[in-house]
Design a protein around this nucleic acid. Sequence first.
DNA 1: CGAGGGGTTGATAGCTCTCAATCAGGGTGG
DNA 2: CCACCCTGATTGAGAGCTATCAACCCCTCG
Lengths: 261, 261
Amino acid sequence: MTQFTNCNTKAPDHNKADSLVFRHLMDDQTLLPLDSGERQRLDSVRWLVKTIDRNCPVIGQGEDREVVAVLLSGWAFCYQTLPDGKRQILDFIFAGALVGFGTGLTNSYGVETVTACNVATLPHGQFRRLLATCPALAMQVVERVSDSEMRAHEHMTSLGRRSARERVAALIVELTCRAQCTDLGRREYSIDLPVTQMMIGDALGLSNEHVCRILGKLANDKVIEINNHTLKVLDQPALSREAGADPKDFIGRESQLPAAA
Amino acid sequence: MTQFTNCNTKAPDHNKADSLVFRHLMDDQTLLPLDSGERQRLDSVRWLVKTIDRNCPVIGQGEDREVVAVLLSGWAFCYQTLPDGKRQILDFIFAGALVGFGTGLTNSYGVETVTACNVATLPHGQFRRLLATCPALAMQVVERVSDSEMRAHEHMTSLGRRSARERVAALIVELTCRAQCTDLGRREYSIDLPVTQMMIGDALGLSNEHVCRILGKLANDKVIEINNHTLKVLDQPALSREAGADPKDFIGRESQLPAAA
DNA sequence: CGAGGGGTTGATAGCTCTCAATCAGGGTGG
DNA sequence: CCACCCTGATTGAGAGCTATCAACCCCTCG
């Protein structure tokens, strides 16, 4: 029984060169100088690539840790659900994200798609063995996990010490930066925002109603503009000021990788 | 200029076998089977071991990323401070914790001691080079960072979706478990808790006054007992129930390592 | 002995949640 | 093609939780 049982998944595609998956995890600078042994070990790995519909689980919280997954395209998020049903979204993730990696026998968090996604999976044990024999990959994974931890820290600071308005501002700054929809030439940042207000609420520890009110006020103050799930930042300096954070804080390694092949 | 400038640090101790530092990062199962090459690389590293007084900085937020540090003994915490001065404590850390490791040119968080601590430091670049050539160490670091990320996720869920009382309960459950002060035989968990209520507040996103009130109520309800910085859990099941979490969720790899040498 | 940090307690204000009702848009079945 | 439904967004009113401000105590430390 795989974790895709309840999803609408398209047929696995084995024709793609599996090693291309690593282009999402490693940059050329790391990938090219590899010796033939490491190269061969990477090439010998057979990822299972699937397309998963929007709003479908990728990995279930609490399930046995069966696979690690690499997001190849689309939006998704990691979350935890409490026994009483309250949900906390831990991170929104894009192409290149590595999920399901960790210690412990079960997944400490779940992953769900926001848009339709291409996802590559590999059995957990196989990935760990690969890590142990390929230092270059291990280094990249360390950096990937490290970046993810840094974002978790930023989110914690938001949740614990920022007001609702500040949290919303910080999230917008983070997402516009991470999604690289910066349009600095026109002094405008705009982004196609497929997330619902309920997701924003679950990410920021707020009720969806309050998120709605805050977004309305930000729009009223001419800081942002929202039309049909497209968000445009009208006043980037004001937004950064309200967030109490610099946009560059959110630019991690992921943004240094080439765009999805 | 080192990051210890403002601290009362005792004289560095180079007499200790530096490789013992790795016993805090790696278990015997990993350390013993190493080939001579890796072993030699690990042994050739010269850690700088210092004793740092209580309430002193170990690493400063925003400073250049100069060193990674391994906590050898004592309590400390990682934190972020916002421009307006509000502080969020990200994690309390014990012996074996690796801090200061991450991407980016400056430290995204600071580290401060709670009690006097022994700390081993190594220049960041040197540690990274070591990682790249020692897969066993890289694996351990991945797991260490991964555990830290898992705790960050739990903390996020607390901050975003739990009430003040639930957060306090969850923190107590976490700390009693992580500090391994379980005294299951007597059906009591007790722990020497060197943290101030202000630190608890900064960790949970609460004011110190509110923390005080909550702790008082928990004591009043016979769930815990506090005497002179010693916390005793009187009703572990009730505490776990209120926390909405299982104690075992907080038991990471760190608890599987041998006690400090 | 004074100063200062941490802990405690009370009163008040304010932010955010909850509940409720309405509206808009997209997908579905007939 | 249309009615229906369901999700998500919106707006309002009220309650509740937590912050803030203030005062006081206790203890340690210089």
